[in-house]
Design a protein around this nucleic acid. Structure first.
Length: 263
DNA sequence: ATGGTCGGTCCCCGA
């Protein structure tokens, strides 16, 4: 009895479809949370992915953003297609569903947290406001006392050990103290960051820029995370960053992180 | 080494 849940920012599902299909066949996660699908719902390659045995739910947007949930287990209910707290916010960055695992319901969200650069500025203000809304939602979810996995591209480098050269990133929205504090604030509610919990090694990355040879030089950052409610954290068995997809032709700049749970 | 990389769209923007 084991449930694997992956998060991967694919940077356009259309540009990445062959890579995504190849990876789904190889890694075969029970649930995959995708970000930056960069397409509207109607243009999402639903059939190709359903053919691999997945149920598919998307919150798409033209050109930018967009998130998806793929699940081999039944999706009982899509609980939310947007993060509550701002009716004016039209950016497609959040989907949350209840999925039937063998042991009972598991709540999973696919999250594309705003980048926030340049900082300071309106984009940074939006990032911080979005994180406050996420904290509120995360807090509300704890009252259900069920396994909750908030998986996604958080655009947060939690510690200096999660970047090859922290000094080079000083002032960036991904590493600013206020950004880190907003991320910690969610953890202090009672959430566990899966990778930090299981793997003590530093300098394990999930993103390498396309520019300046970042991938061959291993100049990466760790910004894709799984945040777990206590009921999920108690069942966490393993976490792996799967670097395979980043080394392929036509790669996304992110690579998947996969958690395995006794669920 | 005075540029460098992608993806989507409309001639530039976001990452």
């Amino acid at each position: 009895m084991s449930l694997s849940i992956a998060s991967w920012n694919v940077n356009s599902i259309k540009a990445r479809l062959p890579n995504v299909i190849e990876w789904l066949k190889e890694a075969s996660p029970d649930i995959a949370c995708l970000q930056e699908i960069k397409t509207v719902d109607d243009a999402f390659p639903r059939l190709e992915i359903e053919e691999l045995g997945y149920n598919v739910e998307t919150v798409g947007q033209k050109s930018y953003n967009g998130v998806a949930l793929l699940s081999k287990k039944p999706i009982e209910e899509v609980a939310l297609r947007a993060l509550p707290g701002d009716d004016e916010d039209e950016q497609a960055r959040y989907i949350e569903a209840v999925i039937s695992a063998d042991t009972g319901p598991v709540r999973v969200a696919s999250i594309y947290l705003p980048n926030g650069n340049p900082a300071p500025g309106p984009k940074y203000d939006y990032k911080l406001a979005w994180m406050e809304r996420l904290r509120n939602r995360a807090e509300a979810l704890l009252s259900f006392e069920e396994p909750v996995i908030l998986a996604g591209d958080y655009n947060i480098i939690p510690r200096d050990d999660d970047v090859h050269d922290a000094a080079a990133w000083e002032g960036d929205a991904l590493i600013r103290p206020q950004s880190r504090a907003a991320f910690s604030a969610i953890k202090w509610l009672g959430y566990t960051e899966a990778f930090e919990q299981i793997d003590g090694r530093g300098h394990q990355y999930t993103f390498w820029d396309y520019q300046a040879g970042a991938w061959p030089k291993n100049n990466g950052i760790r910004i894709d995370h799984l945040l777990l409610s206590p009921q999920a954290a108690d069942t966490l068995e393993a976490v792996e960053i799967d670097k395979g997809p980043r080394g392929k032709e036509k790669a996304s700049d992110h690579t998947p992180i996969i958690g395995r749970f006794a669920l």
